[in-house]
Amino acid sequence: MAAPETFDRPAESTAQAHPLTVRITHWINAVAILVMILSGWRIYNASPLLDFKFPRDLTLGGWLGGALQWHFAAMWLLALNGIVYLVYGFISGHFRRDFLPVTVTAILRDIGEALRGKLPHELGVYNAVQRTAYLSVIVLGVILILSGLAIWKPVQLQELAALFGGYEGARWVHFLAMVVLCLFVLVHVIMVMLVPKTFLPMWTGRAPPGPRESNEEKPA
């Protein structure tokens, strides 16, 4: 992390799969997201948008007031941690280096290779599908936080709320963004389970010894 960053990708990826800041913010984010989603489900249940409620036992907070306390406490963790991750990602060049470029051709190629079981996994280098997924979930996180702010402060932040079609519109955007986020987390965790060797490096930052390339698929 402290060492000057270069574009020398292969050399870098052997030494370090994930920078410390990325690892710390990733796991703090995972906890914050879990709290936000589970308490959010309890809040949703108080006045469901659809003819559907989340199973009570899966939710966090016990009752609406408790769930709101969790949600409005964890939002600070989520937002501050997210800001640290974004600032680091831009300033260190992590986003530019590890997420870009991502082209339609590359995505199609990687999907094709993955389907034929020929997509090589190199720790520290994300394939085009991963890049797309990670960039999308960052944008999704920003949408979730902004629509959440609009619901929280529809008068003080009414210009922001208007962007989402007012208070009721922002509620829908917030809800739908949560649904998409849940799908991301589901696929993301399934991919990690399919390629378990990616799990430890996300904690240690080091690629495990042994052959760095295999024919396994990569997590998205």
């Binding site: 879990l34 709290v35 589970l38 308490s39 309890r42 009570r56 036992d57 899966l58 939710t59 966090l60 907070g61 016990g62 009752w63 408790g66």
Partner: peptide, 15 residues
């Protein structure tokens, strides 16, 4: 009182 009243949900338990 609140804490005693609200049985901890599964979510809270996992955490």
């Amino acid at each position: 009182r609140l804490f005693l009243r609200q049985s901890l949900s599964l979510g809270a338990l996992t955490l």
